[in-house]
Write a protein that binds this DNA or RNA. Structure first.
Lengths: 232, 232, 232, 232
DNA sequence: TATGAATGAGCGTTCATTCAT
DNA sequence: TATGAATGAACGCTCATTCAT
């Protein structure tokens, strides 16, 4: 036996993605959830079919129902599991914040980094979000409630920053948290689901947010720019 | 005029919405487009059916196809028509801007006001947006291109502000335009499609944006908060 | 011209049943209902598929849903339409009853005759009956209520017979009506859906019922056979 | 025996029905058959699932197939086992009949009593009957043959009654047996599966049958009521 | 004996689309 | 211009059955 022409392992060259998942001996149940995150993320709820998920996972489509009941429940499970992963990461990455503003900064940075490290699966969160199309009216409230966990975490840092002097004390807590979150979501969506290419967007998002919260920002604004008659 | 055969009041009390549209003698073609905007806005692309649109417009469903060909084309037409209306309004409302920053402010305010004045139909734009679910991969590029008109209008004010000294000259033009737009979109979505109730959000959005663009904002940020290793 | 070998009409020899229905220029909506009665009657609710109904009617299966909504509603419509036909016939055939007992006799005879004259479609009533499998729990009450029309018609003749002296006055009205109906149903089911062959059953059913209602019947029964401890 | 480690009471308060079956140390194989009778009886063949049977029996659903092969065979086994129980009871309860008519009476009474004493499981016989929906065309003949055992037992008493003078000698044996059975089946179905409430039905059924078989019944019927042109 | 993971045929249903009128 | 009958691809889902453990 010589090593020249014999493959060392009988590696199966055109390994499909589905086969790959089985190859890693990822349990089928896990493979299905993972595939669901990818496919829902890529196509959204309606356009995704159970067959697509099953095929990507390399299993019979009946198995998807076996483990996750139905499409709606699979979608919610896929989305919520992603939220839980994200929250765990955010909580870990922001635990050493030196101030409220620093916490906000770490929060935004970690969030954006998390999306980069979960390129394939993160978009499921964009679909399973109260800011997205309401294709599951029945689950609207549950999703919204779950998402509040993210926004409240952000709001807590705003409050802390207003107490420790790192954030402009005049800002309304809740509104500010929503606006920061808007910037995060906007940056992520622009990068992940639009065809636009805005290379510096993630880095600039952090600066944009920090500037708006900083204590000096307001002082330089000419008076006529301040009032607004807008009412929701 | 005699009272003989005239009904005293021609009030038709239980007038359905569909009937109302015909009543105003709105041409059927227009009624269909208007209904399409409402229904697509409320339910999204996939969930909307041609029958829903026809019923809301009070016409036979065959007529929808007769005028607009197919669902996809109806959707695009409904969305683009909304964009065009929006752009016209924005262009008109911002023509008296005193400076770049003032232009940004007017832009944001007018945008938000526009959504309030088109509560029923505006959501079609949320669905027909490159930042939303890509349920029509074939039209993704066209939609994205159309939307750039909005973002470029915003970017033009940023540039002008950096030239006239009303906006921090160090900000990257494109990224900043996208971030401002994030705040607009976030505020609108929060108000129109989430179950959250954040009463001061629209007014605060204007201030949040203006603060971040103002020339003094950056100076108050401690150095360690500035750098960011984030790369898209 | 001679009639010997030329077909008078270009009759299409292997005419399928479906084609035949179209041939008679029976409207498609009617053809579907008729086919539904046949197929539901032959196979029961669960075993029948929409495809079977559509094929027998010679139409695309989508048209079934177009006209009748869904399987359940098609089933109910098919069954109730048969009940209505039956009731109309019974009411017509019994209008000349000379007495209550004669009315019962005419009722039973007409009922049995009706089943013979609707051999293909009548069995739908056997399936869509409160005495049959409850495969549509949701419709159980409605079906039961509809069927009472039949039983009440019978009961009215029993009452009349007790008043005019043709029927044993000691019989309990309601129970007797149910028992007569049992004999009808039993005879029809035996003939139409079991493999048994009991040639004289229909004729004997009439006699069996009439004997049990007659005024002399009870007198000949030895006392020890009368009491019964049965309680429902 | 010491009390140290023994729980004072091994009471397991919220015992589910499934758990109860295991508790009685009913062998699992028996528990499955019993559950099958209940579930098939309640829901019919098509609507019943193997999982429902397994759950009610408190066993893994694989075990059902392990013992009974497939759904069809489980159904037949469940139904035939009920027929065998019924026949044994009838044969025992009618063995002291004083005459043919008395035998018929005992037969009907015992049959009705049996259904009352097997409220939960008897309905399986209603489903697995040639007079019911033919959802198992393949087994139609076998079921019909098995059921003949019941009808023939009845017919034997009719014959005996005609010989011993307790039953009208002019009645056709087979038809009469079928008609008596119609009354039994009708009473049972009315009570067990319809929503009707007819309290005296069981007791009246016995009298209704006996009257119709009695020797005096026919004499009181006016001639014009006798003939019938009905042919099956 | 006992389990439940895994499969896929077949179901009811939805709905965009076409077309004769 | 306006209608709605008619079609059938494609969907989510159920569930009997098989089989490795």
């Amino acid at each position: 036996m010589n090593g020249k022409s014999m493959p060392l392992t009988e590696s199966n060259p055109p390994l499909t993605e589905a086969a790959a998942k089985q190859e890693n001996s990822m349990p089928k149940k896990t493979a299905i959830l993972h595939s669901a995150q990818e496919v829902f993320g890529q196509h959204g709820y309606s356009t995704t079919t159970m067959k697509m998920v099953a095929e990507k996972a390399g299993v019979a489509f009946g198995l998807v129902a076996h483990y996750y009941g139905n499409k709606e429940s699979l979608f919610i499970t896929a989305g919520f599991s992603m939220i839980d992963d994200l929250l765990a990461t955010l909580s870990h990455k922001t635990r050493k914040a030196r101030s409220g503003l620093d916490g906000v900064r770490l929060f935004v940075e970690s969030y954006l980094t998390f999306t980069q490290e979960h390129r394939r699966t993160f978009p499921v969160l964009i679909r399973c979000s109260p800011f997205s199309d309401v294709e599951l009216p029945a689950e609207r409230e549950r999703i919204a409630e779950k998402f509040l966990e993210i926004i409240h975490a952000l709001q807590a840092f705003v409050r802390r920053g207003q107490q420790d002097g790192s954030i402009n004390p005049e800002l309304p807590e809740a509104e500010t948290a929503f606006l920061i979150y808007s910037n995060i979501v906007g940056a992520v969506r622009t990068t992940m689901i639009t065809p636009y290419n805005v290379p510096g967007l993630y880095a600039e998002t952090v600066r944009y947010v920090v500037r708006s919260l900083s204590v000096a920002a307001e002082s330089s604004i000419p008076p006529f720019l301040r009032p607004s008659s807008l009412v929701d």
